[in-house]
Write a protein that binds this DNA or RNA. Sequence first.
DNA 1: CGGCATCCGGGAAGATACTG
DNA 2: CAGTATCTTCCCGGATGCCG
Lengths: 230, 230
Amino acid sequence: MELEKITKVESRASRRYEDACGAAHALDLVGERWALLVIRELMLGPKRFSDLRADLPGISANVLTQRLEGLEEAGVLVRRKLAPPASTQVYELTPWGYEAEPIFQALGRWAARSPRHDPSLPLSDVSLLLSFRTMADPVRMRGVKMRIGLRLRRGGYCVRVGGGSLDVSRDSLEDVDLVIAGAPPAIAAAVYGGVPLAQLETEGALAIEGEHGLAERFIGLFALPPKVGD
Amino acid sequence: MELEKITKVESRASRRYEDACGAAHALDLVGERWALLVIRELMLGPKRFSDLRADLPGISANVLTQRLEGLEEAGVLVRRKLAPPASTQVYELTPWGYEAEPIFQALGRWAARSPRHDPSLPLSDVSLLLSFRTMADPVRMRGVKMRIGLRLRRGGYCVRVGGGSLDVSRDSLEDVDLVIAGAPPAIAAAVYGGVPLAQLETEGALAIEGEHGLAERFIGLFALPPKVGD
DNA sequence: CGGCATCCGGGAAGATACTG
DNA sequence: CAGTATCTTCCCGGATGCCG
């Protein structure tokens, strides 16, 4: 057991980049496969093991366990036991963990220009909401004030636009001007793919509860960068 | 041979995150081990295979070959043959590849707060220069105008401060106000570690050609974020 | 069922030696 | 100098099973 631990530590050490560069150290911490996506899924609040598994298509249970251990050891997240009677264990980012969001924004903005980016793949609730924070255009938000509710697979979120910025929270859908209900890929198709709302509604992929004009204005707040070569 | 190709393609596909999230796609492109560090080393201009190998402590030749192939296929870099009589082959980022710099800035800023960050590890020329671009404080640069030359192991660089921003280029050391010569870790110790210039000079780790006061002012332009817990 | 340990097969990374 | 070939080690992914 002790020997096992030692060899484990040694192998970990030998697999780190021996590099003082901050980016290299970041990759030592979160560069393993799935690590950043686990953090992404926790960016809007704590989740349980099984929620993480369900929201990360393709991760296996043992890898998720390993990543959670490593990220906890690195100080990126903590395990927390909810007060009874819930008593379930959740994983929650530390304040420093939450500060990783610019990493996702930089990665996302850069990859959005990739010729190979395939928007038809599955998209998690959190990914969609984070993309709003990343892709909202400050110029287009100037003078706009609205509260949009999103009813996604795993719950409700509220997007508040005002004061030239955009705020997102996992929230009930009280006091919103409009609710958009649907799966994340459908909403992404409307927001980023230019697919008309009417078409998505007749297909049953999406439902709008409120004024359509407001939904159109909401969609107009976001802009993808042009693909490489354009 | 054909079978080999097919299995290779299949394995590649199965190892991608099937996720429309931009960050996930970025990791499909540059998430493999060493890939981002290869890009980092090319951020300030093209390099040869052996230079990359020398500047990436610990990468092996076959992995470097694979990463260069993959990054070329992804459109992040191109192989270019220099005109005769040089005739050596170099690897150069595409314009889109150069746009990856915010990724390094986000990673670096975040990891700089890590309790485990060890600044005494080796540091490449490019890492040091990129850290200047990342960590220069716009407030402190206000009204400052200077041209600092750096003579590092692998050549000369010029850091131009002016108009509230900082510019870096691989360049000769003509027309600079000051030259700092030394190994990147020593310069980092002065800039980020608070080690006095005089001490580094007497140790022979660093040499200043010009006014010391100017060097001190240059060093004062940079600030690391506080560590987690401070 | 949620969380985790264990075993196994395949494939990626690492080290070293070798070649045009 | 710029890689290729080969071998070993280790990580990832899948399946199974344990336990509260």
